[in-house]
Amino acid sequence: MILCPTCFNEELEGALFCGSCGTQLTYQIKSPTETVVYTKRGLGKGDAAETQLIHGEPPAAARLAFKIITNGQIIALEGGEEFTIGRVSGTQPILPDIDLTPYQAYEGGVSRLHATLRITPETVTISDLGSANGTRVNGIKIPAHIPQPLINGDTITLGKFQVEVIIRD
């Protein structure tokens, strides 16, 4: 049996969507050793990051990474100073660098442009972009548009979507 993470409806093994609420169920079986790397190296300002799927640990060049708490998958960021997080839906003029759609972002209440990450040699900060459901760091809601410093091990919550911060010095 598969338990739908959104409505707790039971579906048979092999089901791709929850028959009760329509949630996609396939990403539940993602291997925890996979890492998605987002690269902005060599791209102009305003270009969305390129993605690449690798097996194993994040590459050494990535100072900042996230671990998705529900399935253990890792998102690594490299080669850029600023990354926006959100989800892609239909026709929107500005696309986020990190598209969380595959991780049930819509059901989880992630906004199209939810938050921005800034990576400098000294600090890593997160700013909420005035999202509908807000951003929390370690459970505490942060005010919109004000950068908030992050340290290794922090938990970020976008709507209901949770990740653990991994910062390597």
């Binding site: 049996m1 579906e11 048979l12 093994e13 092999g14 089901a15 791709l16």
Partner: peptide, 16 residues
């Protein structure tokens, strides 16, 4: 097919 190979499983499963 929804899957190229099916897992051995002690319960029912769906294939599309």
């Amino acid at each position: 097919y929804s899957r190229s190979a099916l897992p051995i499983l002690a319960e029912s499963q769906l294939v599309y």
